[in-house]
Protein backbone atom coordinates (compact mmCIF):
# COMPACT_ATOMS: atom_id res chain seq x y z
CA UNK A 1 0.00 0.00 0.00
CA UNK A 2 1.40 3.37 -0.98
CA UNK A 3 1.72 5.84 1.89
CA UNK A 4 -0.96 8.45 1.75
CA UNK A 5 -3.65 6.24 0.25
CA UNK A 6 -5.12 5.01 3.50
CA UNK A 7 -7.21 7.63 5.26
CA UNK A 8 -4.87 10.40 4.04
CA UNK A 9 -1.96 9.33 6.23
CA UNK A 10 1.72 8.82 5.53
CA UNK A 11 2.10 6.47 8.45
CA UNK A 12 2.74 2.77 8.19
CA UNK A 13 0.54 0.45 10.19
CA UNK A 14 3.34 -0.20 12.69
CA UNK A 15 3.88 3.54 13.13
CA UNK A 16 0.17 4.04 13.74
CA UNK A 17 0.25 1.30 16.35
CA UNK A 18 3.31 2.83 17.95
CA UNK A 19 1.69 6.26 18.11
CA UNK A 20 -1.49 4.74 19.52
CA UNK A 21 0.55 3.06 22.26
CA UNK A 22 2.41 6.29 22.95
CA UNK A 23 -0.84 8.23 23.28
CA UNK A 24 -1.89 5.69 25.90
CA UNK A 25 1.36 6.37 27.78
CA UNK A 26 3.20 3.16 26.85
CA UNK A 27 6.83 3.60 27.87
CA UNK A 28 8.10 0.81 25.60
CA UNK A 29 6.60 2.60 22.60
CA UNK A 30 8.48 5.73 23.61
CA UNK A 31 11.76 3.82 23.97
CA UNK A 32 11.25 2.24 20.54
CA UNK A 33 10.73 5.66 18.98
CA UNK A 34 13.79 7.08 20.71
CA UNK A 35 15.88 4.15 19.55
CA UNK A 36 14.63 4.45 15.99
CA UNK A 37 14.88 8.21 15.55
CA UNK A 38 16.99 9.56 18.41
CA UNK A 39 20.33 9.45 16.61
CA UNK A 40 19.01 11.24 13.51
CA UNK A 41 17.38 13.89 15.69
CA UNK A 42 20.65 14.49 17.51
CA UNK A 43 22.52 14.56 14.21
CA UNK A 44 20.13 17.17 12.88
CA UNK A 45 20.35 19.27 16.05
CA UNK A 46 24.14 19.29 15.76
CA UNK A 47 23.86 20.62 12.25
CA UNK A 48 22.56 23.80 13.85
CA UNK A 49 24.16 23.83 17.28
CA UNK A 50 27.58 22.25 17.27
CA UNK A 51 27.93 21.78 21.00
CA UNK A 52 26.83 18.25 21.83
CA UNK A 53 25.39 19.10 25.25
CA UNK A 54 23.30 21.92 23.80
CA UNK A 55 22.18 19.65 20.94
CA UNK A 56 21.08 17.04 23.46
CA UNK A 57 19.02 19.70 25.24
CA UNK A 58 17.39 20.55 21.93
CA UNK A 59 16.54 16.89 21.36
CA UNK A 60 15.05 16.65 24.83
CA UNK A 61 12.99 19.76 24.21
CA UNK A 62 11.88 18.28 20.90
CA UNK A 63 10.65 15.07 22.53
CA UNK A 64 8.67 17.13 24.99
CA UNK A 65 7.14 18.93 22.01
CA UNK A 66 6.40 15.56 20.40
CA UNK A 67 4.64 14.27 23.51
CA UNK A 68 2.64 17.47 23.90
CA UNK A 69 1.65 17.48 20.24
CA UNK A 70 0.97 13.79 19.84
CA UNK A 71 -2.79 14.07 20.19
CA UNK A 72 -2.87 16.57 17.38
CA UNK A 73 -0.49 14.76 15.02
CA UNK A 74 -2.53 13.62 12.03
CA UNK A 75 0.08 11.86 9.98
CA UNK A 76 0.12 14.34 7.10
CA UNK A 77 3.85 13.80 6.85
CA UNK A 78 5.85 10.73 7.72
CA UNK A 79 6.57 10.29 11.40
CA UNK A 80 10.29 10.81 10.82
CA UNK A 81 9.74 14.03 8.87
CA UNK A 82 7.48 15.33 11.63
CA UNK A 83 10.09 14.54 14.30
CA UNK A 84 12.91 16.09 12.28
CA UNK A 85 10.92 19.25 11.60
CA UNK A 86 10.30 19.76 15.30
CA UNK A 87 14.03 19.40 15.95
CA UNK A 88 14.92 21.73 13.07
CA UNK A 89 12.60 24.47 14.32
CA UNK A 90 13.90 24.30 17.88
CA UNK A 91 17.54 23.97 16.86
CA UNK A 92 17.29 26.89 14.44
CA UNK A 93 15.89 29.14 17.17
CA UNK A 94 18.54 27.97 19.57
CA UNK A 95 21.35 28.53 17.07
CA UNK A 96 20.21 32.08 16.42
CA UNK A 97 20.07 32.76 20.16
CA UNK A 98 23.51 31.25 20.86
CA UNK A 99 25.35 32.80 17.95
CA UNK A 100 24.13 36.38 17.84
CA UNK A 101 27.62 37.53 17.04
CA UNK A 102 27.75 35.65 13.73
CA UNK A 103 26.14 37.60 10.88
CA UNK A 104 23.92 34.70 9.92
CA UNK A 105 22.06 36.30 7.05
CA UNK A 106 25.32 37.52 5.56
CA UNK A 107 26.54 33.95 5.23
CA UNK A 108 23.41 32.42 3.81
CA UNK A 109 22.92 34.38 0.59
CA UNK A 110 26.12 33.66 -1.26
CA UNK A 111 25.92 29.89 -1.05
CA UNK A 112 23.84 29.24 -4.11
CA UNK A 113 25.51 31.73 -6.38
CA UNK A 114 29.00 32.88 -7.01
CA UNK A 115 30.89 29.70 -6.43
CA UNK A 116 33.62 28.63 -8.80
CA UNK A 117 33.67 25.47 -10.90
CA UNK A 118 33.76 22.03 -9.23
CA UNK A 119 37.32 21.39 -10.41
CA UNK A 120 39.91 24.15 -11.06
CA UNK A 121 39.74 25.04 -14.78
CA UNK A 122 43.51 24.66 -15.24
CA UNK A 123 43.10 20.92 -14.78
CA UNK A 124 41.31 20.79 -18.14
CA UNK A 125 42.64 21.42 -21.66
CA UNK A 126 42.11 24.90 -23.04
CA UNK A 127 39.78 25.99 -25.85
CA UNK A 128 42.49 25.77 -28.55
CA UNK A 129 42.99 22.07 -27.95
CA UNK A 130 41.15 19.48 -30.02
CA UNK A 131 40.30 17.86 -26.70
CA UNK A 132 39.14 21.13 -25.18
CA UNK A 133 37.45 20.63 -21.82
CA UNK A 134 38.97 17.19 -21.27
CA UNK A 135 41.36 16.43 -18.45
CA UNK A 136 44.85 17.93 -18.73
CA UNK A 137 45.73 16.82 -15.19
CA UNK A 138 43.43 13.84 -14.67
CA UNK A 139 42.41 12.54 -11.25
CA UNK A 140 44.74 9.90 -9.90
CA UNK A 141 42.93 6.79 -8.74
CA UNK A 142 43.07 6.50 -4.95
CA UNK A 143 43.96 2.81 -5.08
CA UNK A 144 43.85 2.41 -1.35
CA UNK A 145 42.74 -0.68 0.47
CA UNK A 146 39.35 -0.32 2.14
CA UNK A 147 40.82 -0.41 5.67
CA UNK A 148 43.08 2.51 4.86
CA UNK A 149 40.23 4.54 3.41
CA UNK A 150 38.25 3.79 6.55
CA UNK A 151 41.11 4.71 8.91
CA UNK A 152 40.57 7.30 11.63
CA UNK A 153 42.92 9.74 9.87
CA UNK A 154 41.08 9.57 6.57
CA UNK A 155 37.74 10.02 8.28
CA UNK A 156 39.12 12.94 10.26
CA UNK A 157 39.86 14.65 6.93
CA UNK A 158 36.18 14.36 6.05
CA UNK A 159 35.14 15.84 9.39
CA UNK A 160 37.47 18.80 8.87
CA UNK A 161 36.25 19.29 5.30
CA UNK A 162 32.59 19.22 6.34
CA UNK A 163 33.22 21.64 9.20
CA UNK A 164 34.81 24.08 6.77
CA UNK A 165 31.77 24.13 4.45
CA UNK A 166 29.36 27.06 4.32
CA UNK A 167 26.40 26.47 6.66
CA UNK A 168 23.78 25.30 4.20
CA UNK A 169 26.13 22.96 2.37
CA UNK A 170 27.18 21.51 5.72
CA UNK A 171 23.57 20.94 6.73
CA UNK A 172 22.64 19.26 3.49
CA UNK A 173 25.62 16.90 3.34
CA UNK A 174 25.27 16.03 7.03
CA UNK A 175 21.64 15.08 6.63
CA UNK A 176 22.01 13.34 3.27
CA UNK A 177 25.32 11.55 3.54
CA UNK A 178 26.01 11.27 7.28
CA UNK A 179 22.47 10.73 8.57
CA UNK A 180 21.21 9.01 5.44
CA UNK A 181 18.09 11.14 4.94
CA UNK A 182 16.37 11.14 1.55
CA UNK A 183 16.42 14.19 -0.74
CA UNK A 184 12.71 14.73 -0.07
CA UNK A 185 13.24 14.68 3.70
CA UNK A 186 16.06 17.20 3.49
CA UNK A 187 14.00 19.54 1.30
CA UNK A 188 11.16 19.31 3.77
CA UNK A 189 13.19 19.71 6.95
CA UNK A 190 15.53 22.45 5.71
CA UNK A 191 12.85 24.14 3.59
CA UNK A 192 14.80 23.96 0.35
CA UNK A 193 13.64 23.47 -3.21
CA UNK A 194 14.67 20.20 -4.81
CA UNK A 195 17.08 21.99 -7.14
CA UNK A 196 18.71 24.01 -4.37
CA UNK A 197 19.10 20.91 -2.25
CA UNK A 198 20.91 19.22 -5.12
CA UNK A 199 23.14 22.22 -5.86
CA UNK A 200 24.18 22.47 -2.20
CA UNK A 201 24.79 18.72 -2.03
CA UNK A 202 26.88 18.83 -5.19
CA UNK A 203 29.07 21.63 -3.88
CA UNK A 204 29.50 19.96 -0.53
CA UNK A 205 30.38 16.54 -1.97
CA UNK A 206 32.73 18.07 -4.50
CA UNK A 207 34.70 19.83 -1.76
CA UNK A 208 34.84 16.77 0.46
CA UNK A 209 36.07 14.67 -2.49
CA UNK A 210 38.72 17.30 -3.18
CA UNK A 211 39.85 17.28 0.46
CA UNK A 212 40.13 13.50 0.41
CA UNK A 213 41.99 13.65 -2.87
CA UNK A 214 44.46 16.20 -1.50
CA UNK A 215 45.04 14.03 1.54
CA UNK A 216 45.26 10.66 -0.21
CA UNK A 217 47.46 11.78 -3.08
CA UNK A 218 49.93 13.82 -0.95
CA UNK A 219 50.37 11.19 1.74
CA UNK A 220 50.97 8.66 -1.04
CA UNK A 221 53.80 10.86 -2.30
CA UNK A 222 55.27 11.04 1.18
CA UNK A 223 55.39 7.27 1.38
CA UNK A 224 57.66 6.87 -1.63
CA UNK A 225 61.22 8.02 -0.72
Amino acid sequence: MTPGTLGGTFLSVSEQELLGALRRGDEQAFITLVETHGASMLGLARVYVRDRAVAEEVVQEAWLGVLRGIQRFEGRSSLRTWLLRIVANLARTRAVREARSIPFSALAGAELEGEGPSVPPERFRGPQDRWAGHWATPPEPWNRPEHELLSAETRAQIVVAIDALPERQRRVITLRDVEGCSAAEVCNVLELSETNQRVLLHRARTKVRQALDDYLTTSEHQQSP
Partner: peptide
Protein backbone atom coordinates in the same frame (compact mmCIF):
# COMPACT_ATOMS: atom_id res chain seq x y z
CA UNK B 1 35.97 8.81 -6.01
CA UNK B 2 32.68 10.63 -5.66
CA UNK B 3 30.99 7.35 -4.74
CA UNK B 4 33.79 6.52 -2.29
CA UNK B 5 33.41 9.98 -0.74
CA UNK B 6 29.69 9.42 -0.19
CA UNK B 7 30.33 5.98 1.26
CA UNK B 8 33.08 7.23 3.61
CA UNK B 9 30.98 10.20 4.73
CA UNK B 10 28.28 7.70 5.66
CA UNK B 11 30.64 6.04 8.12
CA UNK B 12 30.77 9.22 10.24
CA UNK B 13 27.31 8.67 11.63
CA UNK B 14 27.51 8.97 15.36
CA UNK B 15 26.14 6.43 17.72
CA UNK B 16 23.06 6.80 19.72
CA UNK B 17 22.32 9.17 22.51
CA UNK B 18 24.47 8.88 25.59
CA UNK B 19 22.95 6.86 28.46
CA UNK B 20 22.52 10.12 30.41
CA UNK B 21 20.61 11.72 27.54
CA UNK B 22 18.45 8.61 27.28
CA UNK B 23 17.69 8.70 31.01
CA UNK B 24 16.84 12.37 30.66
CA UNK B 25 14.34 11.52 27.94
CA UNK B 26 12.73 8.81 30.04
CA UNK B 27 12.26 11.37 32.79
CA UNK B 28 10.63 13.72 30.31
CA UNK B 29 8.34 10.88 29.26
Amino acid sequence: QMRATIHLTGTLREDDLTPEARDGLLEVF
